[in-house]
């Protein structure tokens, strides 16, 4: 027998998470999507707005893998350039809602009282309506366009983050470290933002991933309806809308951006699942 000391090897959390194929696929999809969004010029074979009347509505071929649209623009290039807009949507339509929701949720969860009661009514009022209906209503007031769309989604979306954060902060308050912070005489701000928030934010981060997928879907829907990105900008919803009248003759016009939406949404969902595993507290 050797006198080697037995030390139970504990694989790191990250390594454990990376054993899940779903998480890896999610990382790859989102990683590649981010690359496409950052450097569309490198990946796109053509100028997305270059019109070629001699090659209108061509089916997929070696020269145009996704075919061409009714103005002869290369569909693949347009789908790739759309990554810029749609990935930006995923971030900009959610990040402000995330920040506002986390702060508001942490505050009402910590202080409770009247603010919490009012917050509860606001939540009730907002979740009574389907998300899309509320957003369309706000866009209708503000006018169509990407910026207004971000404002509209933020105005509605923060509520979902806030109620998640509130519930988690209240759960964390049940742990004695919160009470210990109070009896140590620490300021409320310190207890909320240094102690409670980092412990409570995990589910919010996971939800954020899912929400980015939803934001892309929502942004595309609004683009399709003409309330979001405006043509001739390349955006998946806009592209699908442009192809909808030719669905029986030029199916690729709507299908390709549709696949991009599905793929990116899938990527964010897998990433969210993986993160949930990674961040879940272990006994």
């Amino acid at each position: 027998m050797s006198d080697a000391v037995f030390t139970p090897s504990q694989p790191s959390r990250i390594r454990l998470a990376l054993r899940k194929p779903g998480f890896v696929v999610g990382i790859l999809i989102i990683g590649f999507s981010v690359m496409l969004a950052l450097f569309p010029g490198i990946f796109a074979p053509y100028d997305p707005n270059a019109i070629d009347y001699l090659a209108v509505r061509q089916p997929p071929s070696w020269t145009h893998p996704f075919g061409t649209d009714l103005l002869g623009r290369d569909s693949l290039s347009r789908v790739i350039w759309a990554y810029q807009v749609n990935m930006q949507m995923a971030v900009l339509a959610t990040v402000f809602a995330l920040v506002i929701g986390v702060v508001v949720g942490a505050l009402v969860g910590y202080y409770r009282g009247i603010a919490d009661l009012i917050f509860g009514r606001v939540v009730d009022a907002v979740i009574t309506f389907p998300f899309l209906v509320l957003v369309i209503a706000v866009v209708a007031v503000l006018g169509p366009g990407l910026i207004n769309m971000y404002i509209a989604i933020t105005l509605v979306g923060w509520v979902y983050y806030a109620r998640l954060m509130r519930a988690e902060v209240i759960a964390q308050m049940g742990n004695d470290y919160a009470a210990a912070g109070i009896v140590m005489g620490y300021s409320d701000r310190r207890i909320i933002f240094r102690h409670l928030l980092p412990n409570a934010i995990t589910p919010v981060i996971v939800y954020w991933m899912t929400d980015m997928a939803l934001a892309i879907l929502l942004g595309s829907s609004l683009g399709y309806l003409g309330l979001g990105a405006q043509p001739p900008q390349s955006e998946w919803g806009v592209l699908i809308a442009e192809g909808r009248n030719f669905i029986s003759t030029a199916w690729w016009l709507s299908l390709m951006p549709g696949i991009a939406i599905v793929l990116t949404g899938l990527g964010f969902s897998l990433l969210g699942d993986g993160l949930a595993d990674l961040l879940r507290p272990r006994g």
Binding site: D176, A180, V183, P198
Partner: peptide, 15 residues
């Protein structure tokens, strides 16, 4: 004045 709690598993911030 200081106070200590019953449950040492949760009375420290795990992070």
């Amino acid at each position: 004045i200081a106070m200590i709690f019953q449950e040492p598993m949760t009375s420290l911030n795990p992070l």
